[in-house]
Amino acid sequence: MTSETRTSNKPVVIGVHVNEGTMRDPNPRIPWTPTEIGDTARECEDAGASLIHFHGRTSDGGADHSSDTYGAIIERIRATTDLLLAPSLANVPGYTVEQRLSNLVPNLENASRRPDFLVIDMGCAAMDLVDPDTGRYVTDTRTFVNDTRTQTELLDRAEELELTPYMASFNVSWTRAIVNHARSRSLTFPLVVAFILGGDEFPAAHPASAAGLRAQLDLLPPDLQVEPIVSAYRGNVLEAAEESIRRGGHVAIGAGDHHYAELGCPSTADLVRHVVEIARRHGRAPATPEQARRILGVKAHAGNRQ
């Protein structure tokens, strides 16, 4: 990560997490269908976003890992925005690497259905959620497995498929894995690293606070070129967003991560506007999609609007 002094005027890449696996209670503004996701993407770009992460969903909110649905979502977003696309993989427990890629690979020959990033979770975690009122676990068997071999295979596939790795880290062990991969193999710089913090409901990740983010950022070797993007699952990211922006990093936010009932259950576009306000307070403007492409080192894409 470059020094704060040299990055003070760098535009802020604002990503959006529009749906995740989130249902519509209490926030009804969660898009599920390709049309709804595309419309939300347009609103978010207008508000200042330059990158989008999404999950395929059925019309009633269930998970949809089909390549047809992901292709339709990407095509819809590309038709009306210039946002960089970082879709989820088909992360079903027990799936092989090729099965995880099955929602994306069939579409890669079609420029209008091709993403920009391959999202790679760089570690294993107990994904069980906690009831914030009682402190008790809601589930106790959900384990997400991305062992070192899986990480390596996905990094290899990203290179083969000419997709930029979008490496996610929940905690410092995942970040150390990212650093080790960067030291031991040929990765394109800058590294795009998504630091996913966790609210009280999601103890698998570092706390959704400035301190939680600092623990991650301070672990990065000074000679390693990283563009960090902070988000918070089941928690309010705005405190950490200010820390990231102050230190030259970026932010991802969305109603898919957290309902933000404390703010009146806003839309994801409204949340983007909050981040824009923070960025401007620190003398930084929101990055356009083209600026984000240059900052994150993503190659120009034939499927983008002209």
Rank of each mutant, 00 (worst) to 15 (best):
R185Y: 03
L191D: 08
T141K: 14
M23T: 14
H274C: 10
S3A: 10
G303E: 07
G297P: 02
A215M: 12
E242N: 07
N107Y: 04
G61S: 12
G256C: 01
P165T: 09
A194N: 11
E160I: 15
S59M: 07
V237A: 03
A285D: 13
A210N: 08
I30L: 06
I178K: 11
I74T: 15
A72M: 14
Y233G: 11
F54H: 12
V230Y: 04
E227N: 08
A261C: 06
R294V: 13
L155H: 11
I74E: 12
G199C: 09
E36Y: 08
T7K: 01
V179P: 02
L101V: 06
S173K: 14
L154N: 08
R142A: 14
A252Q: 05
I278M: 02
H206A: 15
F195D: 13
A205H: 06
T35D: 15
A90C: 12
D46I: 14
T288C: 01
R100M: 05
R185G: 09
A210L: 07
V12D: 00
D257W: 02
V18T: 11
D64F: 04
T96W: 02
E75I: 09
C44H: 00
I295A: 04
R183F: 03
P222R: 10
K10N: 11
V138E: 12
G199T: 01
K299A: 13
A79E: 14
I245H: 05
H274I: 11
D140T: 14
L197N: 01
L191A: 03
V179G: 04
V298G: 04
I295G: 07
Q151H: 12
P165V: 08
R214F: 07
L238Q: 02
D270M: 08
E98Q: 12
W174C: 13
M23F: 14
R273H: 00
L101F: 03
V92M: 00
A241G: 01
